[in-house]
């Protein structure tokens, strides 16, 4: 109804407290129709809580949230007809067959009898489970379960889908297949609201919101976040004796941050021209440097910089 402005979710100063603990702290954002909106943040940062409020499962302490044009407090029942939701611990009924699970959720969502067969076929196709309709769900491998769960959650073709860590615990190939499904749905104009811990998945999102300690600390496209989060230059350092190198670099003027990445180090420096001086300083301490070069910050760098606050002043909303 009020979707004329092109936003499927609008959140304004949303707060959720459990006792005197604030799980969601005055967050505001909008998602646009048809986009893949990623929700990132460390454990306990309030991602699931926000999603549950948007699905009408938790009542907000204060603030406003509009989903599909309806207010979450006033008309949760109308919202339920317009959304699909896969909770973080989504689980299907293990003792029901693939078909029975789909049939059950179709019934719950009131899929009309005339469309029933078609929708179930579509979901089977999507999950790659055609021919396995009568397998017990409990016997399926993780990736299939996940796709079947998505199928169950979107049988009624909702315009907005909330996915809370849908790919946790499945193999990389299944994750890729799953994300292909997400992209396809988004291409059909469905708004996807997804939380994840995987940086590679975050790269697939049109826009990302970064949560930390209940607060929304950054919002933008992956590129904007990467560029905006790091002030200065990012250098990749490969050397031996990492421990001592870190010690030395922490004391080096002009190195703002040092973080371990695999068996290399990422340095944030104010000026890329400092590289030769850094190399000299390390070699003076008998640390042999294999390589030291400027790199483009990854999303993980941005994530670390933003959540630890070490990336310095980052804008909470970037111009798009």
């Amino acid at each position: 109804m009020t979707r004329s402005n092109g936003n499927s979710v609008e959140v304004e100063n949303l707060v959720k407290r459990f006792g005197d603990f604030t799980a969601v702290d005055r967050i505001s954002f909008q998602t646009r129709t048809g986009e893949v909106f990623g929700f990132l943040g460390p454990n306990g940062s309030g991602k699931s809580t926000t999603i549950r409020i948007l699905c009408g499962l938790l009542r907000p302490t204060s603030g406003r949230a509009i989903v599909a044009g309806y207010d979450v407090v006033q008309s949760p029942e109308l919202i339920r007809r317009n959304i699909g939701y896969m909770s973080q611990k989504f689980s299907l009924y293990a003792d029901l067959t693939v078909f029975e699970n789909l049939r059950f959720y179709a019934g719950m969502y009131g899929v009309p009898a005339a469309e029933l067969r078609g929708r179930i076929d579509w979901a089977l196709e999507m999950a790659g489970l055609r021919g396995r309709e009568s397998n017990l769900t409990g016997t399926l491998a993780g990736g299939w379960k996940q796709r079947l769960a998505l199928g169950c959650a979107v049988l009624h073709r909702p315009p907005i889908v909330f996915l809370d860590e849908p790919t946790s615990g499945v193999d990389p190939l299944s994750r890729r297949l799953f994300w292909e499904l997400i992209q396809r749905m988004s291409g059909d104009g469905v708004t996807i609201f997804v939380t994840t811990h995987y940086m590679d998945e975050a790269e697939y999102c049109n826009r990302l919101a970064l949560m930390n300690g209940g607060k929304l600390i950054a919002l933008g496209t992956p590129t904007e976040l990467k560029l905006g989060s790091i002030q200065g230059w990012l250098l990749l350092l490969e050397c031996d004796r990492l421990g001592e190198a870190i010690e030395r670099l922490r004391r080096f003027d002009g190195v703002r941050d040092v973080a371990v990445f695999g068996n290399a180090l990422h340095l944030v420096v104010s000026d890329a021209a400092a590289a030769p001086a850094i190399r000299a300083a390390l070699e003076a301490d008998a640390i042999s440097v294999t390589s030291l070069q400027p790199i483009r910050p990854s999303l993980e760098d941005a994530f670390v910089a933003l959540t630890t606050g070490r990336g310095a002043n980052c804008p909470s909303e970037l111009p798009s």
Binding site: G56, E77, M86, S87
Partner: peptide, 13 residues
């Protein structure tokens, strides 16, 4: 416990 109740609660039931 297994999480399906939360899933049921978001359906229009």
């Amino acid at each position: 416990e297994i999480g399906t109740l939360e899933q049921l609660m978001v359906t229009p039931i």
